[in-house]
């Protein structure tokens, strides 16, 4: 293997690679934030909403969870432009990932909320807390602690799903890698690099998650 050529190729490609990584990180990050917010709304609707609201959200949730991410992405890309909303690949991909994320977050949070013992709500009521206060000070802190591991997992899944955005033209790491290889045919090296990067991202997410888990865990 000619290391000098290798390093020079890598060096030339460095900006493209960084852009790709940046895009991957940005779109994943934004999707996580938006998706989590939407997911909280989903969970609240399912746990506290009226019958009709629960039905609608449930249908939405089952639909999204039953479809593969890839189909979701393609659907968002094609269907939305048909419906008159012109979206760039980035925007369409973001919508798809956000919806995907919200379905996972919603389901996890709903599970966590329902798993809380009824006595917690009763004790909160007994000291005179309103529903809003009960939720904010008693229920949410416990449910969020419970849902954290699953949320970290969802975040990692989102980064992995971002690779599929390359198909609709979002210039994230996967597409960038393929573009570079088209110019400088060294598939093994560049894919290896991409692989290492993805591994590091996901691994760090997991590690970070475990650290946060330990810090917020309750002493016993």
């Amino acid at each position: 293997m000619d290391f000098i050529r290798l390093f020079s190729d890598l060096y030339i490609a460095r900006w493209a690679i960084l852009e790709g990584v940046g895009m991957t990180l940005i779109i994943s990050f934004v999707a996580i934030i938006l998706g989590t917010m939407l997911g909280i709304g989903v969970a609240l609707s399912l746990v506290y909403g009226g019958k009709f609201q629960r039905f609608l959200v449930r249908v939405f949730l089952e639909y999204v969870r039953g479809t593969p991410v890839f189909v979701l992405i393609l659907a968002c890309y094609y269907v939305l432009s048909q419906a008159g909303i012109q979206l760039t690949p980035f925007q369409a991909g973001l919508v798809a990932l956000t919806v995907f994320c919200s379905s996972h977050v919603g389901e996890n949070l709903r599970g966590a909320l329902l798993a809380l013992p009824k006595g917690q709500t009763e004790a909160a009521k007994a000291i005179g807390l309103t529903f809003r206060q009960t939720f904010v000070y008693v229920l949410a802190p416990q449910a969020l602690r419970q849902a954290l591991p699953a949320w970290i997992n969802t975040a990692a899944e989102l980064v992995k799903a971002s690779t599929l955005l390359s198909v609709i033209g979002v210039v994230e790491l996967m597409l960038t890698t393929r573009q570079i290889i088209a110019l400088k045919p060294r598939p093994l090296e560049f894919y290896l690099l991409a692989g290492i990067i993805y591994f590091l991202i996901c691994f760090s997410i997991e590690r970070l998650g475990r650290r946060v888990e330990r810090r917020i865990s309750l002493p016993s």
């Binding site: 009763e122 909160a124 007994a126 005179g128 008693v138 309750l218």
Partner: peptide, 24 residues
């Protein structure tokens, strides 16, 4: 109204069989 009921509940204090302390 719920807010009124919440206020009324603060006139009583209840201790439960299962304690129901807030673990966090």
């Amino acid at each position: 109204k719920e807010s009124e009921i919440a206020r009324q509940r603060s006139m009583t204090g209840m201790v439960f069989q299962q304690f129901n302390l807030f673990p966090h």
